[in-house]
Design a protein around this nucleic acid. Structure first.
Lengths: 116, 116
DNA sequence: CTGACGTATCAGTGGATAATGATATGACGA
DNA sequence: TCGTCATATCATTATCCACTGATACGTCAG
């Protein structure tokens, strides 16, 4: 094993970081709950709060995060702001994860490295 | 808005947690680097260490995590242990993430909620 | 204009967790 | 058997980050 492999991967380091960041963005129950609410419908912040049971600042913070990441889009309507998924690929990625959970990623609940 | 929506989502709470856990599992640069090494080939721990530049205990810890989660499988061979992706769906999920990054999730680098 | 409502922002804090160093375990060769 | 190599485990530490409460901003109704 030369050090070549190492150097190659270090070059791809930024790509890995970006991937990781995307997955971490999706790796939060609050954000997933918000996305889940938006899968069905375009929603105002209050509606998301109602669907998820999360606090309003929490929802707003996370929506901003999702917006910055490009996963949702927003649209002002009077004093309401309505959010929706930016792209159906977002929902597709979540479905792909569900398929993985159903098939091979069984026992994920048992992994004790991080909390369920 | 009734409380019905809230109750429904609370019922699905465990599913959300599980999704989140899977994404968090993939949301770590070290684990992604490890998976990246395994995409090409079955690898021993040392080979993964070489590919990624990570420390050996770090790699072992994360491989155990990935194994528990069912994302990789292992096979003993003398004093070596060879790991591989458990399923091609794992690689597919990562590719789906890359597609999202290329198309709609632009600006993820600018999201300041968490570090890049 | 004023009060109520919807949303956004921000600092503080507690909890989670990734990486490391030390060490243990197990297998091979001499 | 002894030393070496490959891997695993574990406690510690330092960091990161999600949530909350307080508050600000903007919009509409009366």
């Amino acid at each position: 094993m030369t050090t070549q492999g190492v150097r190659d991967d270090l070059l791809a380091h930024d790509a890995l970081e970006l991937r990781a960041k995307l997955f971490r963005g999706l790796g939060d129950p609050s954000r997933l709950a918000i996305l889940d609410a938006l899968v069905s419908d375009e929603c105002s912040v209050q509606e998301v709060v109602g669907h998820t049971g999360l606090g309003q600042p929490n929802v707003s913070n996370n929506l901003r995060c999702l917006l910055d990441c490009g996963l949702v889009s927003r649209r002002s309507e009077g004093r309401f702001v309505r959010y929706r998924l930016a792209d159906r690929r977002v929902a597709e990625l979540i479905r792909a994860a569900d398929r993985l959970l159903a098939s091979t990623a069984t026992g994920l609940g048992d992994c004790e490295r991080y909390t369920e």
